[in-house]
Amino acid sequence: MENKIRFTLNFKTVEISASPLKRLLDVLREDFSLTGTKEGCGEGECGACSIIVDGELVNSCLYPVGRVEGKEVLTIEGFRSTPEFEVLRESFEEAGAVQCGFCTPGMIMAAEFLLRKYPHPTEEQIRKGISGNLCRCTGYDMIVKAIKLASERGDGLW
């Protein structure tokens, strides 16, 4: 059974017909061709599919699209046009926080969410904030440093 579902996607109102049970991740990747959001596990374990829905960080692989009705969805594709993204991009590059990059879009969304909550996070808060996002390449240090760097650079942005 398909429903009409309306929501805001990356600052624009959109409407689709889909089964309300379809995973938001699939809707983003298949129906909207927004492939920046990755699937690393499909079980809520890895955070590669992280996006922001109404200001909350969610795993889009566990999120049925029916629940998104009337909400605001932000993915890496929308976020990348913001000044906050620019600061994070620069810091991630400079700190060496990216290797294979498969975890990165999700990590960036987690970082954005964290910085909205704590504009000047401690190392502890950063480590906690990204603990739902697995990275197999970096061992996390350089990601933690990148977020720290972004919080200093983007002083006042968040």
Binding site: R29, S33, T35, G36, T37, K38, E39, T75, I76, E77, R80, F85, L88, R89, F92, E93, G96, V98, C100, G101, F102, T104, P105, I108
Partner: peptide, 24 residues
């Protein structure tokens, strides 16, 4: 001395295409 990695900006922005992002 470290330099900028060319592959990284597209990875951060979600532009880099992994196998699951291809559609033929």
């Amino acid at each position: 001395q470290s330099v900028r990695r060319e592959d990284v900006p597209d990875k951060i922005a979600g532009i880099a295409k992994y196998i699951g992002d291809y559609k033929f």
